[in-house]
Structure formats: C-alpha cells, structure tokens
Design a protein around this nucleic acid. Structure first.
Lengths: 220, 220
DNA sequence: CTTAAATACAGAAAAATTTCTTTAATAAAA
DNA sequence: TTTTATTAAAGAAATTTTTCTGTATTTAAG
C-alpha cells in the first residue's frame, strides 16, 4: 500500500528515505538465501533478483556499515544482523491502534509486523459494537477510557486508522500517552511536536499508480 | 505499508509517479470538503491541510487538466470528477488474489479498495484448509483448478501475496489468464512482458522508516 | 604464475523531483 | 474606483536520487 507524503523530525537522517524503504526488501531476500544455506551474497545478485541497478544496491548496503569482499560479496549473517539492527527489527516496539474499522482490522490481522519488531497490543474505537470484542486476539477498548490517562505508557508507536476528522484529536491524545511515533493512515497532515516521529501512509497510492497506468497504457 | 521498487511499462507516463501517489489523497480531502458543502478549494488550502508546498499542489493538480480560478481556487465538483477519471476510480476493475495468508486476507478484508474501482472477486491458495472457505465473502479456490484455464477472463488485476518463491510462477499463470496488471507484494523482482503493468509494494517499507527514525532520533 | 572476470567502492554525471521566483489575473477591501 | 491581497501558472533553480565511470581488489581459471 502506500506512501510517504510528509514527515517531521527529519533532522540528521543522513540515509536517504528511498534507501530505508529498500532495505527491508534486501533483508527479506537475504534471509531466504540464508535459509537456503548461502553464506555470501553480492550486490549484483541482489540487483538481479530485484531488477535494480547493482550500484544502487551497493550504495544502499553501504549505509549499514557492512563492507563487502571483492569478487565475493557480503557475508550474509553479518548483513542480516546489520540490517535488522539498522532497521530496528530486532527491538520490540508495542503499538496502540485507534480506529478499528476495515483498515485498522486488516492491519491488526496482518500479523506480519510482529516479525519486524512491532506488535499491536490494543485497539481503540468509539463504536459501541466494537468495544469489548477482540480482533485476532487484540482487545478493542473504548477510546474515552484512555482519554484522561495520566501515567505514561511504555507504548512507542501509535497507529491512526480513523476518519480524517478524528485524526488530529487522536494524535494529540497519543502524544499525551507518551507515544514516540505516529503512523498515520488518515489523509490529513497532522500537526505534531518536533520530537514526535510522524509517518504518513496512503493506502490508495499504489493502487492509484496501477489504475492510472491501466488506463493510460490501454489507450496506446 | 508500501512503496514502489520497480515497475515495467513505464513508457509515456508523463505524470511523475510521486504526483500520482499524492492525487488520491487530494481526492479524499476534496470529497470531504464537498460533503461539507464547499464548492471551491485552493492549492494553498490543500497544502495547509497536508503540510505540503503550495506550488507542488498546483503542479500536481495541473496534470488533471482542471484549471483554477485566480484568487478562488479550483471548482470542487470539477476537480473530483477529473481526479476520479484520471485515477481510474470510476471504472470498475475486478481482481484475483493469489496467496490467502495474513496479508492476502487483510487486503481482502479491507474493503476500502472497492470505493476506488477495484474489487477482489476471488482468492486462490494451495492450502487445503483454506480451499472452499471464504474471506469476507470472497471465495478461496484451489490454484490448480485455474492452471489450465484456456479462455481469457475479464479480470484486469492480479494481486500476488504469496511467498517470494512462488511469485514468479503465479505471475506467469496470471499473464496466461489475460490479466493486464500485477500488484506484487512478494519481495522479488518479477519478470513480466512489456505490456503487463507491474506494481511492487513492500509492506515493511513504511514501518522501516518509522523504526529507523525511532532508533536514530532516540540517540540524539 | 599469469591472466581474466567479477566485485566493491568512490566519485562524477545524469535524471527526477521539489522548491523558489516571477508574472498575470481577480476578488475583496478600502 | 483604486488598492491590496491572494491565487494559478509557468519557468528557473536547487535538491535529491539514480545511474554511469573508473579504479583497485581478489577469486578463479588457464
């Protein structure tokens, strides 16, 4: 799905964001190679698999600090560790999700994130029909119950899957909870303090690209 | 989620892909304004809502062909129609999904795509436990039943949510079905003919950006 | 041992994208 | 009516990202 529209706290991030986006893909492939008993992988090999420019792969991997061996490539075990470390996939982050609609439910049910260090531990909504239920084992609470929470939680990530009209209020609430990063799926530009990490994801972005190409190449 | 790594059939796409990605977001906001009885919207207004550069909004919207009125902005009804037309959201595309795991199920259950012109009409898997069931009303068939399909289907989009090892085979199969576009979620670079539209989406990309920022700003 | 091929890496060049600047138009205010 | 402020739009500049070149290294083949 999606794509970044805006982001705050972009100071001192020397690594280009397109690179950060590609790194998980490299990691995934390298892990597959690791399971297939490979011990080394070269940039050209990764480039062939992903149909990318070999020098781009080299540049991307250089940000991990791993140095490759000429004529051989990179040591897989070393690269896996470096990538997981760089991406933060080996740390454990717990997340709250607000807005248990179709998108929110889909995100919860997609447990794949668990392998990447993020676990959704609770969901919130204001729909009485959803309160008290659970989605794939994740309980759904009433948002109001957490409104006046004074003690800070150990939750680092807040996921917003509400309608856009509610998103800013939810964001403010999350900041009050002591959350460090907000993953926003609402199509609105949230106003957050400098120290809050904000990542906007727009579900329709990729679909839009496909549909647009479909129409524009069909005419050719 | 999300992001494009590669794409084929990129001939004559004069509109920058970042622009195409932003357009659905504009559309969403403009529709909200429309419901709130607004009739005009200006680029600076959209820019404030999304925290973007105003001239970027102007440039993006210029690709729709809609021309704005100085000092007033764009007519909302005209813009909605132009955006939906440009993005293909008012056409109806049916899709097959192969790989009914967590991600595939999440995508099916997220019915939001229906509003954007794409409807997932069937899912395929090779897991006997899944065959015969349905996910949110979408039936799950055995992939093999469709392997030797000779007649072309009217399905335009194929969604791949299989493990990477199966992805290329599935892609070839889909091309045989007469599919026009492939939306690939497997972390692998698919080889497809020139005329097939290929869009790669990498689920972990956005999460990676967040986790990376979390670690790198926490140290500051 | 020598040669050839494949690779990492650094730097330069090119391409794409965003941001800035200027101009003209026009609605609203004075 | 005149002035002011806001906006769209086009083009230029700046920035970011990708791609291209060249060099040194090293494994493997001859």
């Amino acid at each position: 799905m999606e794509t970044t529209l805006s982001s705050s706290a972009k100071q001192s991030v020397a690594v280009p964001e397109p690179t950060v986006r590609r790194l998980p893909t490299y990691l995934n492939i390298i892990k597959n190679l690791q399971q297939a008993e490979h011990t080394y992988v070269s940039a050209p090999t990764l480039a062939r698999i992903l149909r990318l420019d070999p020098t781009q792969v080299t540049k991307d991997l250089s940000y991990t600090g791993v140095i490759g061996k000429t004529r051989v490539g990179y040591q897989i075990s070393e690269l896996v560790e470096a990538l997981e470390d760089f991406l933060g996939f080996n740390r454990k982050h717990e997340a709250f999700l607000v807005g248990a609609g179709y998108l929110g439910s889909a995100l919860i049910q997609y447990q794949g994130f668990r392998e990447s260090g993020m676990r959704i531990v609770a969901a919130f909504d204001i729909d009485k029909n959803k309160i008290g239920t659970d989605i794939a084992g994740v309980p759904v609470f009433h948002l109001e119950k957490f409104r006046d929470l004074t003690e800070r939680l150990h939750i680092t990530i807040g996921i917003i899957t509400t309608p856009p009209s509610a998103a800013q209020n939810v964001a403010d609430l999350m900041i009050g909870w002591g959350i460090k990063a907000i993953w926003n799926f609402a199509p609105i530009g949230l106003k957050v303090p400098e120290h809050i990490i904000l990542q906007d994801t727009h579900i329709y972005a990729n679909l839009a690209v496909i549909l647009n190409k479909l129409d524009h190449t069909a005419l050719k």
